[in-house]
Computed example of a mutant assay.
Amino acid sequence: MELRQINYFIAVAEELHFGRAAERCHIAQPPLSQQVKRLEEELGVTLLERTSRRVALTPEGKEFLKRCKDVRDRLNEAVICIQDMAKGLEGQLRVGFIGPASLSKLPQAIRSFRERNPNIRLDFSAQSTTEQLPLLRGDRLDIAFVRLFGHDTSGLNSLLFLREPYVLAVPEGHPFTERDSLDLKDLEGEPLVFFQPMNQPALYRSLIGAFHKAGFMPNIVQEANTEQSIIALVATGMGCALVPASSVVVNRGGVVFRPLTGDLPQWEITALWKKKNQSVILQKFLDVAREFREVH
Protein backbone atom coordinates (compact mmCIF):
# COMPACT_ATOMS: atom_id res chain seq x y z
CA MET A 1 0.00 0.00 0.00
CA GLU A 2 1.39 3.35 -1.04
CA LEU A 3 0.64 6.81 0.30
CA ARG A 4 -0.41 8.01 -3.16
CA GLN A 5 -3.04 5.24 -3.31
CA ILE A 6 -4.48 6.48 -0.03
CA ASN A 7 -4.54 10.06 -1.34
CA TYR A 8 -6.25 8.93 -4.55
CA PHE A 9 -8.84 6.97 -2.57
CA ILE A 10 -9.55 9.96 -0.29
CA ALA A 11 -10.06 12.19 -3.34
CA VAL A 12 -12.49 9.75 -4.97
CA ALA A 13 -14.33 9.12 -1.70
CA GLU A 14 -14.78 12.83 -1.05
CA GLU A 15 -15.68 13.79 -4.64
CA LEU A 16 -17.63 10.59 -5.41
CA HIS A 17 -16.59 11.21 -9.00
CA PHE A 18 -13.47 9.78 -10.67
CA GLY A 19 -13.11 12.65 -13.11
CA ARG A 20 -13.16 15.39 -10.47
CA ALA A 21 -10.87 13.31 -8.24
CA ALA A 22 -8.38 12.96 -11.10
CA GLU A 23 -8.37 16.71 -11.69
CA ARG A 24 -7.87 17.30 -7.97
CA CYS A 25 -4.89 14.92 -7.89
CA HIS A 26 -3.45 16.27 -11.17
CA ILE A 27 -3.49 12.84 -12.79
CA ALA A 28 -5.37 11.28 -15.68
CA GLN A 29 -8.52 9.37 -14.76
CA PRO A 30 -7.49 5.84 -15.97
CA PRO A 31 -4.32 5.55 -13.82
CA LEU A 32 -6.21 6.95 -10.81
CA SER A 33 -8.92 4.32 -11.27
CA GLN A 34 -6.26 1.61 -11.61
CA GLN A 35 -4.52 2.65 -8.39
CA VAL A 36 -7.76 2.66 -6.40
CA LYS A 37 -8.64 -0.75 -7.85
CA ARG A 38 -5.21 -2.12 -6.85
CA LEU A 39 -5.78 -0.77 -3.33
CA GLU A 40 -9.07 -2.68 -3.09
CA GLU A 41 -7.39 -5.83 -4.41
CA GLU A 42 -4.60 -5.54 -1.87
CA LEU A 43 -7.10 -5.08 0.96
CA GLY A 44 -9.42 -7.78 -0.38
CA VAL A 45 -12.32 -5.39 0.30
CA THR A 46 -14.66 -3.42 -1.98
CA LEU A 47 -14.45 0.23 -0.94
CA LEU A 48 -16.49 1.83 -3.73
CA GLU A 49 -19.69 0.84 -5.51
CA ARG A 50 -19.39 1.89 -9.15
CA THR A 51 -22.18 2.21 -11.69
CA SER A 52 -22.41 4.13 -14.94
CA ARG A 53 -24.26 6.90 -13.11
CA ARG A 54 -22.76 7.10 -9.65
CA VAL A 55 -19.95 6.24 -7.27
CA ALA A 56 -20.78 5.44 -3.64
CA LEU A 57 -18.87 4.28 -0.59
CA THR A 58 -19.51 0.86 0.87
CA PRO A 59 -19.76 0.65 4.70
CA GLU A 60 -16.17 -0.59 4.66
CA GLY A 61 -15.22 2.31 2.40
CA LYS A 62 -16.74 4.84 4.81
CA GLU A 63 -14.74 3.42 7.72
CA PHE A 64 -11.56 3.21 5.64
CA LEU A 65 -12.00 6.84 4.54
CA LYS A 66 -12.23 7.93 8.16
CA ARG A 67 -9.06 6.02 9.03
CA CYS A 68 -7.17 7.21 5.95
CA LYS A 69 -7.96 10.86 6.69
CA ASP A 70 -6.70 10.34 10.21
CA VAL A 71 -3.44 8.88 8.85
CA ARG A 72 -3.09 11.77 6.39
CA ASP A 73 -3.71 14.37 9.08
CA ARG A 74 -1.22 12.75 11.44
CA LEU A 75 1.38 12.60 8.70
CA ASN A 76 0.83 16.28 7.88
CA GLU A 77 1.20 17.13 11.57
CA ALA A 78 4.42 15.12 11.69
CA VAL A 79 5.80 16.96 8.65
CA ILE A 80 4.97 20.36 10.16
CA CYS A 81 6.42 19.31 13.52
CA ILE A 82 9.70 18.13 11.96
CA GLN A 83 9.95 21.28 9.85
CA ASP A 84 9.34 23.44 12.93
CA MET A 85 12.00 21.49 14.83
CA ALA A 86 14.47 22.11 12.02
CA LYS A 87 13.67 25.83 12.26
CA GLY A 88 13.95 25.78 16.05
CA LEU A 89 10.27 26.64 16.48
CA GLU A 90 9.29 23.48 18.34
CA GLY A 91 11.03 20.81 20.39
CA GLN A 92 12.77 20.29 23.71
CA LEU A 93 15.84 21.63 25.50
CA ARG A 94 17.32 19.95 28.59
CA VAL A 95 19.13 22.39 30.86
CA GLY A 96 21.32 21.45 33.81
CA PHE A 97 22.60 23.95 36.36
CA ILE A 98 24.37 24.20 39.70
CA GLY A 99 22.42 25.73 42.59
CA PRO A 100 24.26 29.10 42.63
CA ALA A 101 23.27 29.67 39.00
CA SER A 102 19.74 30.37 40.25
CA LEU A 103 21.13 33.53 41.90
CA SER A 104 22.61 34.77 38.62
CA LYS A 105 20.71 36.14 35.61
CA LEU A 106 20.05 32.61 34.35
CA PRO A 107 16.38 32.69 35.51
CA GLN A 108 15.87 35.94 33.57
CA ALA A 109 17.52 34.42 30.51
CA ILE A 110 15.27 31.36 30.73
CA ARG A 111 12.17 33.53 31.06
CA SER A 112 13.18 35.60 28.04
CA PHE A 113 13.80 32.44 26.00
CA ARG A 114 10.41 31.00 26.93
CA GLU A 115 8.61 34.22 25.99
CA ARG A 116 10.28 34.18 22.58
CA ASN A 117 9.85 30.43 22.03
CA PRO A 118 6.56 29.35 23.66
CA ASN A 119 6.42 26.00 21.81
CA ILE A 120 9.79 24.75 23.06
CA ARG A 121 9.63 22.63 26.20
CA LEU A 122 12.38 23.22 28.75
CA ASP A 123 13.40 20.47 31.18
CA PHE A 124 15.60 21.45 34.13
CA SER A 125 17.97 19.51 36.35
CA ALA A 126 19.75 21.06 39.37
CA GLN A 127 22.95 19.08 40.01
CA SER A 128 26.62 19.52 40.81
CA THR A 129 29.23 20.06 38.11
CA THR A 130 30.58 16.55 38.64
CA GLU A 131 27.10 15.07 38.13
CA GLN A 132 26.28 17.16 35.07
CA LEU A 133 29.34 16.43 32.95
CA PRO A 134 28.59 12.72 32.29
CA LEU A 135 24.93 13.57 31.61
CA LEU A 136 26.05 16.12 29.03
CA ARG A 137 28.41 13.68 27.35
CA GLY A 138 25.74 10.96 27.46
CA ASP A 139 23.24 13.20 25.62
CA ARG A 140 20.94 13.40 28.63
CA LEU A 141 21.51 17.16 28.87
CA ASP A 142 21.77 19.65 26.02
CA ILE A 143 23.47 22.41 27.99
CA ALA A 144 24.96 22.57 31.49
CA PHE A 145 25.70 25.61 33.66
CA VAL A 146 28.61 24.54 35.85
CA ARG A 147 31.53 25.73 37.90
CA LEU A 148 34.79 24.57 36.35
CA PHE A 149 37.99 24.10 38.28
CA GLY A 150 40.29 21.50 36.78
CA HIS A 151 37.46 19.52 35.12
CA ASP A 152 37.91 17.72 31.81
CA THR A 153 36.01 19.66 29.12
CA SER A 154 37.35 17.85 26.04
CA GLY A 155 34.75 17.59 23.28
CA LEU A 156 32.73 20.44 24.76
CA ASN A 157 32.14 24.06 23.76
CA SER A 158 31.94 26.69 26.49
CA LEU A 159 30.54 30.13 27.18
CA LEU A 160 31.57 32.05 30.29
CA PHE A 161 28.19 33.12 31.66
CA LEU A 162 29.19 34.72 34.96
CA ARG A 163 32.39 35.97 36.53
CA GLU A 164 32.30 37.81 39.84
CA PRO A 165 34.38 38.24 43.01
CA TYR A 166 33.89 36.67 46.40
CA VAL A 167 32.31 38.67 49.22
CA LEU A 168 32.26 37.93 52.93
CA ALA A 169 28.99 36.87 54.55
CA VAL A 170 29.04 38.14 58.14
CA PRO A 171 26.59 37.44 61.00
CA GLU A 172 24.54 40.46 62.04
CA GLY A 173 26.11 42.25 65.01
CA HIS A 174 29.63 41.03 64.20
CA PRO A 175 32.36 43.73 64.41
CA PHE A 176 33.08 43.21 60.69
CA THR A 177 29.71 44.76 59.88
CA GLU A 178 31.09 48.15 60.98
CA ARG A 179 33.65 48.08 58.17
CA ASP A 180 33.10 48.99 54.52
CA SER A 181 35.37 46.22 53.21
CA LEU A 182 37.70 43.52 54.46
CA ASP A 183 40.93 41.88 53.39
CA LEU A 184 41.62 38.16 53.45
CA LYS A 185 44.25 38.76 56.15
CA ASP A 186 41.51 40.07 58.46
CA LEU A 187 40.08 36.55 58.68
CA GLU A 188 43.01 35.07 60.59
CA GLY A 189 41.63 33.12 63.56
CA GLU A 190 38.03 34.00 62.57
CA PRO A 191 35.55 31.07 62.67
CA LEU A 192 34.61 30.25 59.06
CA VAL A 193 31.89 28.23 57.37
CA PHE A 194 33.25 26.53 54.23
CA PHE A 195 31.93 24.35 51.41
CA GLN A 196 32.65 20.64 51.52
CA PRO A 197 35.88 19.71 49.67
CA MET A 198 34.31 16.69 47.94
CA ASN A 199 32.13 19.00 45.80
CA GLN A 200 34.99 20.99 44.29
CA PRO A 201 38.31 19.55 45.49
CA ALA A 202 40.52 21.64 43.14
CA LEU A 203 38.74 24.86 44.10
CA TYR A 204 38.91 23.92 47.78
CA ARG A 205 42.68 23.49 47.50
CA SER A 206 42.96 26.82 45.67
CA LEU A 207 41.08 28.72 48.38
CA ILE A 208 43.07 27.05 51.16
CA GLY A 209 46.19 28.03 49.21
CA ALA A 210 45.00 31.66 49.13
CA PHE A 211 44.78 31.66 52.94
CA HIS A 212 48.21 30.07 53.13
CA LYS A 213 49.68 32.82 50.92
CA ALA A 214 48.10 35.37 53.24
CA GLY A 215 50.15 33.84 56.06
CA PHE A 216 47.71 31.63 57.96
CA MET A 217 45.38 28.65 57.67
CA PRO A 218 41.62 29.21 57.85
CA ASN A 219 39.75 28.33 61.04
CA ILE A 220 37.00 26.20 59.49
CA VAL A 221 34.39 25.36 62.12
CA GLN A 222 31.66 23.96 59.83
CA GLU A 223 31.21 22.73 56.25
CA ALA A 224 28.08 22.68 54.06
CA ASN A 225 27.31 21.47 50.53
CA THR A 226 25.45 24.52 49.09
CA GLU A 227 25.84 28.29 49.20
CA GLN A 228 22.32 28.58 50.62
CA SER A 229 23.23 26.25 53.47
CA ILE A 230 26.43 28.16 54.13
CA ILE A 231 24.56 31.48 54.35
CA ALA A 232 21.99 29.90 56.65
CA LEU A 233 24.78 28.78 58.99
CA VAL A 234 26.27 32.29 58.94
CA ALA A 235 22.86 33.62 60.01
CA THR A 236 23.03 31.41 63.10
CA GLY A 237 26.24 33.19 64.14
CA MET A 238 28.41 30.14 63.60
CA GLY A 239 30.98 32.10 61.60
CA CYS A 240 31.73 34.11 58.47
CA ALA A 241 31.88 32.68 54.95
CA LEU A 242 33.28 33.41 51.49
CA VAL A 243 30.39 33.43 49.01
CA PRO A 244 29.91 34.69 45.43
CA ALA A 245 28.83 38.33 45.09
CA SER A 246 25.47 37.27 43.59
CA SER A 247 24.58 35.84 47.03
CA VAL A 248 23.82 39.41 48.09
CA VAL A 249 20.44 39.06 46.35
CA VAL A 250 19.43 36.43 48.92
CA ASN A 251 17.08 38.23 51.28
CA ARG A 252 17.99 36.42 54.47
CA GLY A 253 17.87 38.13 57.84
CA GLY A 254 20.82 37.90 60.14
CA VAL A 255 23.49 38.18 57.42
CA VAL A 256 25.45 41.18 56.16
CA PHE A 257 27.70 41.09 53.09
CA ARG A 258 30.98 42.99 52.77
CA PRO A 259 33.45 43.30 49.84
CA LEU A 260 36.54 41.16 50.28
CA THR A 261 40.01 41.84 48.85
CA GLY A 262 42.94 39.45 48.57
CA ASP A 263 44.51 36.98 46.17
CA LEU A 264 41.35 34.94 45.60
CA PRO A 265 40.11 33.11 42.49
CA GLN A 266 37.07 34.57 40.73
CA TRP A 267 33.69 32.91 41.03
CA GLU A 268 32.66 31.68 37.56
CA ILE A 269 29.71 29.88 36.00
CA THR A 270 30.27 28.42 32.55
CA ALA A 271 27.77 27.04 30.05
CA LEU A 272 28.92 23.81 28.38
CA TRP A 273 27.49 21.90 25.42
CA LYS A 274 28.77 19.15 23.12
CA LYS A 275 30.66 20.34 20.05
CA LYS A 276 28.65 17.88 17.95
CA ASN A 277 25.34 19.38 19.08
CA GLN A 278 24.21 21.59 16.18
CA SER A 279 20.62 21.95 17.40
CA VAL A 280 18.92 25.15 16.22
CA ILE A 281 17.07 25.30 19.55
CA LEU A 282 20.35 25.16 21.46
CA GLN A 283 21.80 27.95 19.32
CA LYS A 284 18.74 30.09 20.02
CA PHE A 285 19.15 29.50 23.74
CA LEU A 286 22.83 30.42 23.57
CA ASP A 287 21.96 33.66 21.78
CA VAL A 288 19.69 34.60 24.69
CA ALA A 289 22.28 33.48 27.27
CA ARG A 290 24.83 35.81 25.69
CA GLU A 291 22.45 38.73 26.24
CA PHE A 292 22.32 38.03 30.01
CA ARG A 293 25.91 36.99 30.70
CA GLU A 294 27.77 38.91 33.42
CA VAL A 295 31.54 38.96 33.17
CA HIS A 296 33.16 41.51 35.47
Rank of each mutant, 00 (worst) to 15 (best):
I6P: 01
I6D: 00
A13Q: 03
E14N: 12
G19P: 02
G19L: 12
R20I: 10
A21H: 05
A28H: 12
P31K: 11
P31Q: 13
L32C: 10
L32F: 12
Q35D: 14
Q35M: 14
E40S: 05
L47M: 10
L48G: 01
R53Q: 13
R53C: 08
R53H: 13
A56K: 11
G61R: 03
K62P: 01
L65R: 05
L65A: 08
R67D: 13
R74V: 00
R74I: 00
R74K: 15
N76T: 08
E77V: 01
A78N: 07
Q83R: 15
M85Y: 07
G91M: 07
V95I: 15
G96Y: 05
G99K: 11
S104W: 04
K105G: 04
L106T: 02
P107N: 10
R111I: 14
R111T: 14
S112W: 04
S112R: 12
E115W: 11
E115Q: 14
E115V: 07
P118S: 12
N119A: 10
N119W: 02
R121P: 03
S125Y: 13
S128A: 12
T130I: 09
T130A: 15
E131G: 09
Q132R: 09
L136W: 05
D142R: 06
I143W: 02
I143K: 01
F145H: 04
V146A: 00
V146H: 01
R147I: 05
G150Y: 12
G150K: 12
G150L: 09
T153M: 08
S154L: 12
L160Q: 13
L160S: 12
L160Y: 09
F161W: 06
E164R: 06
E164P: 07
V167P: 02
P171Q: 06
P171C: 11
E172G: 10
G173F: 02
P175I: 00
F176A: 01
E178W: 04
R179D: 00
D180Y: 08
L182P: 00
K185A: 13
K185P: 03
D186Q: 02
G189Y: 07
G189F: 05
L192Y: 01
F194R: 00
F194V: 02
F194Y: 15
A202Q: 14
A202P: 03
A202F: 11
Y204D: 15
Y204W: 15
L207F: 07
A210W: 04
F211W: 04
F216G: 08
P218K: 10
E223T: 10
E223F: 03
Q228V: 11
S229I: 08
I231C: 06
I231M: 13
I231W: 01
G237R: 01
C240G: 04
C240S: 10
A241W: 01
A241L: 03
A245I: 01
S246P: 00
G253I: 04
V255L: 05
V256G: 00
F257W: 06
F257L: 04
R258G: 00
L260R: 00
L260N: 04
T270G: 06
L272Y: 08
K274E: 06
K276L: 14
N277Y: 11
L282A: 10
L282H: 07
D287C: 12
D287Y: 11
R290M: 15
R293K: 15
